[in-house]
Design a protein around this nucleic acid. Structure first.
Length: 109
DNA sequence: AAGGTGACCGGCC
DNA sequence: TGGCCGGCCACCT
């Protein structure tokens, strides 16, 4: 209440991202779809930018449809995102997730 | 206050 | 086969 209901949109995104199982990944579009705005995938990425304040939001498990760590540059370290994924058993090479389809997890609402 | 931007996606040429 | 374009909506300057 201190802030506003603007979290309405972001909150939904975080909610889905938090549901991503350990060792799994998903795409921005999938999340956008889960919240009911399949074409607002852009906002999902934007919401991730603000997710830095949230600790329960594993933004490193969110990549684009190509399976590329597009947002890796938004992390502190250059390869921080990659290390986090590898730490969970997700192999990443050249900023791209190997066997992306196998690690892909479609969010449900 | 208004315009521009963006961790994207899908479709079209 | 690849590249370009529009759309979507909130945040930032």
């Amino acid at each position: 209440m201190s802030e506003k209901n603007k979290d309405n949109f972001f909150e939904r995104v975080y909610e889905v991202v938090r549901q991503i199982p350990h060792g799994k990944v998903t795409s921005y579009g999938a999340i956008a779809k889960a919240i009911g705005s399949p074409q607002s995938s852009r906002m999902v990425g934007y919401a991730m930018n603000a997710s830095h304040n949230m600790e329960d939001v594993p933004a490193h498990r969110v990549v684009n449809r190509n399976g590329v760590l597009t947002g890796k540059f938004h992390f502190d370290g250059t390869n921080l995102m990659q290390q986090l994924l590898e730490a969970e058993g997700v192999k990443v090479e050249e900023n791209k997730i190997l066997n992306f389809k196998e690690h892909f997890w479609e969010p449900e609402f």
